[in-house]
Design a protein around this nucleic acid. Structure first.
Length: 339
DNA sequence: AAGACGGGGGG
DNA sequence: CCCCCAGTCTT
């Protein structure tokens, strides 16, 4: 890790938040952008929400970005710019759970606490050939006890770093490096031939499919309309083109106007249909989203709509969008003849 | 205890 | 296509 040698609690915290459920290669560019934009926690605390969301754009799990800013402001105002230096104190920060608190406490403050993350679950389950599922309350307690025993009196800072490196490089989820593993001789799963089956999980993933129709509106002067997502759904705080969601696939563009959630401010009769995109599929962890972009001209676009943002299309880049949208915008040529 | 929450990469 | 990733929060 580039930040491995760094003792700055701010950077350790920032990197740990970014790396939650995220691969190092994916998170690293974001870490560098954040450090460049906000060298200290006070700089981050002073940032605008929209600016932080924009920097986080594309990384996913956007509650992390919202909590990041909340926590930074908490540290800046309530703690005088200094992070809490204990596991318990760190847990009070939004977005800091058991793993992240232990990581920061050990790496930044030398506290004697063991981390329990995906790597550690995997290594322990395999080494002890342990069939206890990792995704239950009981399982977490069980493995926490095991890792606490494994840590013993060793330096938590070194142990935590070592066990996670070991999980990232040797005892990996797939294509394990058992042939060069220094623990292979003592590994229960290796002896039993169960390495590929561990760790066990109890719950299976449920998925639902949704059909999103985005309305890309253009007046004669290069303007379009976007809205900010709110509520409890995905992509909270991000922007999107006005959205109609349908229960069924293959809905005609003309039929959208009679949908429940057709915007009340948008007179369907004033729109000129230009084109619709082919359906595109986007796989999220719990949702499969099929998107269709419908292009319209709206010659007499009204200039103020409550809760909506009307802007020149070349300024779209200043707002944070879900990948579904940015990916579509990257195919710039599709928009050229519209605006 | 369940469910929700993104996006990318590997097999 | 399915699983996993230096997990956390809400219900």
């Amino acid at each position: 890790m580039p930040w491995k040698a760094i003792a700055d609690p701010y950077r350790i915290w920032l990197s740990e938040i970014i790396l939650q459920q995220t691969r190092v290669e994916q998170g690293l560019p974001y870490f560098e952008r954040f450090v460049a934009a906000y060298p200290t926690v006070k700089d981050l605390a002073a940032a605008r929400d929209e600016e932080v969301m924009k920097l986080w754009e594309g990384l996913g799990y956007y509650s992390r970005a919202r909590n990041l800013l909340k926590a930074a402001r908490m540290v800046a105002t309530e703690y005088g710019g200094n992070f809490p230096d204990t596991d318990t104190g760190l847990r009070a920060l939004p977005g800091v759970g058991p793993y992240t608190a232990a990581a920061i406490a050990s790496f930044a403050f030398g506290q004697q606490v063991a981390v329990l993350d995906g790597n550690v679950f995997r290594i322990l389950a395999r080494f002890y050939n342990d069939l206890t599922p990792i995704d239950t309350g009981k399982g977490r307690k069980h493995y926490q006890k095991l890792v606490d025993m494994a840590l013993g009196d060793a330096s938590a800072k070194l142990f935590n770093q070592a066990i996670m490196d070991f999980g990232a490089m040797v005892c990996t989820p797939k294509r394990t490096r058992c042939s060069s593993c220094p623990l292979a001789e003592r590994c229960g799963a290796y002896a039993a031939g169960t390495v590929g089956d561990l760790p066990l999980k109890e719950k299976k993933l449920k998925r639902r499919t949704r059909y999103f129709h985005f309305l890309v509106l253009a007046d004669g002067e290069g303007r379009t309309i976007i809205e900010q997502r709110s509520g409890k759904d995905i992509w909270q705080g991000l922007y999107q083109f006005p959205l109609i969601e349908t229960e069924q696939p293959n809905v005609e563009t003309a039929a959208l106007a009679s949908q429940q959630d057709w915007p009340e401010w948008l007179p369907a009769t004033a729109l000129g249909f230009v084109r619709r995109s082919a359906p595109a599929k986007h796989q999220l962890t719990h949702q499969t989203i099929i998107t269709v972009f419908h292009h319209f001209t709206w010659a007499e676009m009204i200039s103020k709509i409550k809760g909506k943002t009307i802007l020149k299309h070349n300024l779209l880049k200043n707002h944070a969008f879900p990948r579904v949208i940015t990916r579509y915008l990257e195919e710039k040529s599709l928009l050229l003849d519209l605006f």
